[in-house]
Amino acid sequence: MQEYLKLVKNVLKNGVEKADRTKTGTISLFGTQNRYNLAQGFPLVTTKKIYFHAVVVELLWFISGNTNIKYLVDNNVNIWNEWPFEIYKKSKEYQGEDLSTFVEKIRTDYQFADLHANLGPVYGKQWRNFNGKDQLKTLINNLKNDPDSRRHIISAWNPSEVEDMALPPCHTMFQFYVSGDRKLNLQLYQRSGDIFLGVPFNIASYALLLILISKEVGLEAGEFVHTIGDAHIYLNHIEQVKEQLTREPKKLPKIKIKDGIKSIFNLTPEDIVLVDYEFHPRIKGLVAV
């Protein structure tokens, strides 16, 4: 994953210190682009361990159109817990619970989860029901029937519903492109990218989406192009990214989709297998909420 390390170096070298919504502070660089060729392997960061199970579960959650984190919690994925918890703490029902107690209530109490585990109309809602339009099914149908169109686009940024979201979408719009050699390529525009925690996850997620859509429409996965608006490293992650730069990247893993799977809409986490993932030890860092 030299391309990811190149991004880290670019932000450290050319970014400027900037205040942010979380009051953590960042080194920020506006307008970056990196390209990941899937023929070279699956672009999962190897200079620290990435929890790939969470990548898979979250992506299938998006694809399903679900916006309640109970599905994530039930599958031992906790990457979204902080946002509904912050909302819950401001409600009349809050009784001083800590985050772990809040998550356990979501796991065991369906009524509590219905009331307090929904993030509002975030990614899955927009992918599958953008003002009544199922963008994902439309995209797949159009790729099959009009592959050379320049309109293979999905937007998660819905101005009429942004204020109702627990967190407005960071990865806002993506476009598919069928190249002359009939490979399917994907470009993501991400308005905001947390280089240490979020971006390695986003790279893996959209590379996996490219593989799944390619399989669905009968094309070979080509290149994932990642464009970021505000690419930033939080000030409390500086040492962590510098440590990554001292580590030698390992060989990229591969993705295997189990045989017999007919549709992207019927996949389970067990159907997607990561093969030959070698990695350096995990590096911890606090998420800025």
Rank of each mutant, 00 (worst) to 15 (best):
E93L: 10
L139F: 11
H171V: 01
H237V: 13
L29E: 03
N66M: 05
G222M: 03
M1Q: 12
G15C: 06
K262I: 00
S64P: 02
H226S: 15
W61E: 14
V8K: 01
K92P: 09
F196N: 13
R247Y: 02
V8N: 05
Q190W: 06
H152V: 00
N118P: 05
V178G: 01
G180F: 05
T101A: 13
P159S: 02
L212Q: 08
A231W: 04
I87P: 00
R35K: 13
I211G: 02
D146V: 01
E163D: 11
T32W: 02
F30L: 13
L143D: 00
A221P: 15
P168W: 00
E97Y: 05
K242D: 07
Y123E: 14
K284A: 13
D134F: 09
F30P: 01
L139W: 11
K250H: 07
I154Q: 09
L235G: 09
K89P: 13
R182F: 15
L5P: 15
G96C: 05
I69Q: 10
D271A: 00
M165H: 02
H280T: 01
S192F: 02
F176S: 02
L167T: 06
E248W: 00
F130V: 12
S64N: 03
Q40T: 10
V217C: 01
L143M: 03
N14Y: 13
G229R: 04
E270Y: 08
N14G: 03
H226G: 12
Q33S: 10
E239V: 11
I63N: 12
N78I: 14
T46D: 09
N236R: 08
A19Y: 01
D276A: 05
L274S: 10
E163C: 09
K6W: 09
V8E: 09
N145H: 13
G229V: 08
N66F: 00
I154E: 07
G180I: 13
E97G: 07
V103I: 15
L184G: 00
F102T: 01
N118A: 09
E93K: 11
K256S: 14
E161W: 00
V77A: 14
G180R: 08
I140L: 14
E220F: 12
K18R: 14
L5K: 10
L119G: 06
I264P: 06
V273S: 03
K137M: 04
N10Y: 12
K262Q: 15
S205G: 05
V199P: 07
F224R: 06
E270D: 15
I140N: 06
V57T: 14
E270T: 03
Q240H: 03
K89N: 11
A231K: 06
E3K: 13
M1F: 14
W127M: 03
F102I: 13
T32D: 03
